[in-house]
Write a protein that binds this DNA or RNA. Structure first.
Length: 581
RNA sequence: GCCUUUGUAGCUCAGAGGUAGAGCAUCCCCUUGGUAAGGGGAAGGUCACGGGUUCGAUUCCCGUCAAAGGCUCCA
């Protein structure tokens, strides 16, 4: 949230709406305990402990009704500053312990302690608020969710009530309308409509099945990246989906990552794991020979499918699945090469983003959370690698934000973050510096001095995963993919059966001009309008309509997805007007 | 995993304590057509699965599975 929002009247209005909701909740459920209730990007929420009472959507409607009554009372909202002792007493009087007392204890000594009161309702709160409840006119409660106290799953689960509020009725209605519109761009809806991918309960939760058109998109994307990587000195490798559990014991995954892995397979002699990451395999390849400093950097790339046993409640269409293909690579570099190689990777990521037409992304540098002990490796290595990442960002002029606690357990990283149709942020591409695995696997190269040295690893995936990337691209483009990515690029629509032979000729000629062009010839006996409607809803970039007139003149009638009827032209002319790639 | 919600034909959805309907898609027939859906007919459902209440459950209750929105965690 940017500063202009947090200082805006809208922000205060939503904050006050949260209070209005809390007031109404206490009228209906006097034993409820309030915790925190802030404004958020598109509205507000309040986390409330309802004890053993289950809150349902019917209650939400009642609460909203009560809110309208309290707004109509047009109560003044009054601020009051208390001392810490007075505040403690007030909270106990209001029966809002223990949560509010905990919050009170967190307020630093130099900060003032304020309460806001409207009618019989008083809440510990930093403010600011609007001046009267009557100002809160255009709001709606949206949904109920569970949320852990202080965001920690070891704590009690509270009930979170979400709502939104706006200055005007029009803005509220527009927001609700946009929510509906966003649902139409949902990749799960479009994925089915466009025949890209599916899930089947018979296969398993979070395990996608790629349909022919989605599989084509995967190939287009991998071909593109494979080429870009070849140009940058990457070498392809291929490794299995399963491997001996010992590998992950050495890597530390079994210790740190166990609950994210599918259960161990045990044949009584050996134990195997479905790989959650490709790194140990690439490391084995690195170690298959004695390496010289002259060999480095080594860049092993693999479109590797990995399996992670994500919590069931976390799965989200293609954006979070349990089996996915990373456009993975591991770079083995000397300390002197680290910065340049890191920059090279980020540069490749920017090329990829540009190609995909993704402009609206943010860069997050994930560093260690000093409070957390999940991280492995020496402090000086962490410091060095965090420094290298920040240096690379500076050198490349990237706008980034540092996010403590978002590092991988083995090293800091740089992530590309992109929003989906519903405004949720997802991590896409990632680059991670790793001193830990080289240590654990005792990786070495022989340096100029003839002595063994330890390389540094860089893990990186510009797409992140094909699943997430294609899911996200589907939402970004609302299914109308750019020409080079469209699963079907040209639909040939003969008007009547007698035009099919001509359609076949046109297809052959078009392929001669543009080898590999993805053409679909619709030779079904349907009306032209029907064929166009179908091709249009499948978002095919170009349609070629072929009837008597075209056959006679040796032309094709072109219809574009965006611009409609473009008129007749010869096949060569059409081939020439197609986008270059 | 936890909280809330949902699960009816391939898809989108309607329905009610007494044994289920529409549109689209599918199949057949007619239509050979010029820029977003020609006409007619047929077929298609253990109402997610398993228990319970009831004379009777797809409908009410419990459990399981799956999905959605959150929370915690990650490409």
């Amino acid at each position: 949230m940017d500063a202009s929002y947090t200082k805006s009247r809208l922000y205060a209005l939503r904050h006050s709406a949260a209070h209005l909701m809390a007031q109404s909740v206490l009228q209906l459920f006097p034993d409820a305990k309030l915790t925190i209730g802030p404004p958020i990007e598109n509205g507000f929420y309040y986390d409330i402990d309802f004890g053993d009472t289950k809150i349902t959507e019917e209650d939400l409607a009642k609460i909203e009704e009560k809110m309208r009554e309290n707004a109509a009372r047009d109560l003044p909202i009054v601020k009051e500053v208390l001392t810490r002792e007075e505040a403690r007493k007030r909270i106990l009087d209001l029966k809002q312990d223990p949560y509010k007392l905990e919050l009170l204890d967190d307020i630093p000594p130099e900060e003032e302690i304020s309460f806001y009161t409207q009618g019989e309702f008083t809440d510990l709160c930093r403010g600011p608020h609007v001046s009267r409840t009557g100002e809160i006119q255009h709001f709606k409660l949206l949904n109920i969710a569970g949320a852990y106290w202080r965001g920690d799953e070891r704590n009690k689960m509270l009930t979170r009530l979400y709502g939104t509020a706006f200055e005007t009725k029009e803005e509220l209605e527009e927001y609700l309308h946009n929510l509906e519109e966003a649902k139409k761009r949902d990749h799960r809806v479009l994925g089915r409509q466009l025949g890209l991918f599916m899930f089947s309960p018979n296969v398993g939760s979070g395990l996608p099945l790629w349909l022919p058109k989605g599989a084509v998109m995967r190939e287009v994307l991998t071909d593109f990246l494979r080429q870009a990587q070849l140009e940058r000195g990457y070498q392809p490798v291929v490794t299995p989906h399963v491997g001996n559990a010992k590998l992950w014991e050495i890597s530390g995954h079994l210790h740190t990552y166990r609950d994210k892995m599918f259960p161990i397979m045990d044949d009584g002699r050996e134990q195997f794991l479905l790989k959650p990451m490709n790194c140990p395999f690439h490391i084995e390849i690195y170690q298959s020979e004695l390496r010289s400093y002259r060999d480095l950097p080594i860049r092993y790339a693999e479109f590797g499918t990995v399996y992670r046993y994500e919590q069931s409640g976390e799965l989200a269409g293609m954006l979070r699945v349990r089996g996915f293909t990373q456009d993975d690579a591991h770079l083995f570099v000397t300390p002197e090469q680290l910065l340049d190689e890191f920059k090279g990777v980020v540069d490749l990521m920017l090329v990829v983003l540009d190609r995909l037409g993704l402009r609206d992304y943010s860069v997050r540098v994930g560093t260690r959370d000093p409070e957390d002990d999940k991280y492995v490796g020496a402090d000086e290595n962490w410091e060095q690698s965090e420094k290298a990442i920040l240096q690379a960002c500076e050198d490349l002029g990237l706008a980034y934000q540092v996010s403590p606690g978002d590092a991988a357990f083995y090293g800091p990283k740089l992530d590309l973050m992109i929003k989906d149709a519903l405004g949720r942020t997802w991590q896409m591409g990632t680059v991670q510096v790793d001193y830990n695995l080289p240590e654990r696997f005792q990786l070495e190269y022989i340096g100029e001095d003839g002595k063994p040295h330890r390389p540094i690893m860089i893990h990186r995936a510009p797409f992140g995963s094909l699943e997430r990337m294609i899911g996200l691209l589907t939402e970004q483009y609302a299914g109308a993919f750019p020409f080079w990515l469209a699963p079907v690029q040209v639909a040939i629509l003969p008007i009547a059966d007698r035009h099919i032979p001509y359609a076949e000729r046109v297809r052959a000629e078009l392929l001669a001009h543009r080898p590999g062009l993805r053409i679909q010839l619709d030779d079904r006996r349907l009306t032209l309008g029907k064929k166009i409607a179908e091709a249009q809803s499948n978002k095919v970039p170009y349609m070629l309509i072929l009837g008597d007139r075209d056959e006679e003149a040796e032309t094709v009638s072109v219809r574009s997805r965006e611009e409609g009827d473009l008129g007749g032209m010869c096949v060569e002319g059409f081939a020439a007007m197609l986008p270059a790639d």
